[in-house]
Design a protein around this nucleic acid. Sequence first.
DNA 1: TAGCACCTATAGCAACGCTATATGAACTGA
DNA 2: TCAGTTCATATAGCGTTGCTATAGGTGCTA
Lengths: 242, 242
Amino acid sequence: MSFDGQLPPKMRLLRAAAELLAKSAGAAVSTRQITQLAGVTAPTLYHHFGDKEGLFDAVVAAGFEEYVAGERDFAPSGQPLVDIRRMWDNHVQFGLKQPELYLVMFGNIRPESRPAIVADAEGLLEEMLNKAAAAGQLNVQPREAARSILAANVGVTLMLIAEPAAERNLELSTMTRDAMIFAVSRDQGRDAGPEDSGKSSVVVAAIALNAALQASHSDQLTSSELKLFLEWLHRISTSSTS
Amino acid sequence: MSFDGQLPPKMRLLRAAAELLAKSAGAAVSTRQITQLAGVTAPTLYHHFGDKEGLFDAVVAAGFEEYVAGERDFAPSGQPLVDIRRMWDNHVQFGLKQPELYLVMFGNIRPESRPAIVADAEGLLEEMLNKAAAAGQLNVQPREAARSILAANVGVTLMLIAEPAAERNLELSTMTRDAMIFAVSRDQGRDAGPEDSGKSSVVVAAIALNAALQASHSDQLTSSELKLFLEWLHRISTSSTS
DNA sequence: TAGCACCTATAGCAACGCTATATGAACTGA
DNA sequence: TCAGTTCATATAGCGTTGCTATAGGTGCTA
């Protein structure tokens, strides 16, 4: 298959790069391979993308949009925690379907190159977790919960990718997923050990109120009052969780 | 600094590679750089390691021994779950101390290359989890628990590495760690309906927080702050807007 | 038609991973 | 003692890589 057809060279380069990246199974992909498959010469690549990495970044960006689209695809079920399970599963499926792309996106992140990709993925989760918090189902701050869940999600996906496809056991994913969701969700605290629930009931209530307030535009307080109120709420919410 | 000294060339190559890898901050490291720093010519490298990747594998293997040594360093406390917490923390510390090495070990894993390292790390965890299982503290099979915990541990460490060192928040690690350990340990108050509490409003949340606060003597706010806070809380609680 | 952006091609550089071949040093067995 | 063998390193260079200086073609506006 080649892309000599009708598309503009920029698009042909993108598709060629994506295709070669996808079936190269981790081996290096050269610019010469890409430009040849795209039916284009080297300077064209550098004119449009500046860099080999620039081209790969563009591929990743396209892949990420696909990922985000997948995450938003299903209608909210009204049960945030159920939706979060779906997001987790969708994340894993995306990683297994496009392992090379996934490794570039989440496996190779480095402090300086860490772009908005992780932050965006985190934002999607946090958005959903906010709904859970508003419904009083959360045990911790939505942002922290999102980071934690996403970290575990990435770890599980990387581990599954690393395994030979034949012996992949998705139970690793479901088990870790449920463990994480269970850990951040509220309904564990009630029956848990006595020392745990005493402290956290205030925290849980504060978190729920915080989320609910932000969702509802209550007019019972002036904006300056509200600001201070929320600050105190935050202080309570983030109190001691060693 | 160079390694022209007394050591045999093989060792000099290893150290030079490790050093360059460590301070290259993710950029590619060429064999020419390595051999020059080691005071050796190209064929020597290929004689001893066969391959550039062979050399890197050797570096990783050395790094892994250091990692394992760290994991075994502390004496078992007699409480397996406590030891597992220490193993988790040690894993994260290793990753933060040698991020480049860690990324090669755990971030770049591909199906064909090296589940071996992961398998070893998993074995260490499983060993400890076996003790927990023997003590009746486990909820799931030790092997599955080990895989799950390790996956989350790797995910968290990668995420921390990806952050600028300045704003790294280790609470992500402790929180995820405790969530995972809690999830696999037996004495949790399991069960609880999927969606017990329907929709919680600001008012409900505020009332809950009010009650919780008064019962718990939180010290996050001063008494004067608390007084005002409770007044506002009351205003919100008694409002009729949903 | 002239001028002007844009886009693409020709040709080639420096750096890369790697190797065919040769040389020296250290050990063997007679 | 010394040829034979093996191990370890060096010289030199191959093919490929990412990238670019330069020039030419194309379609637009005037």
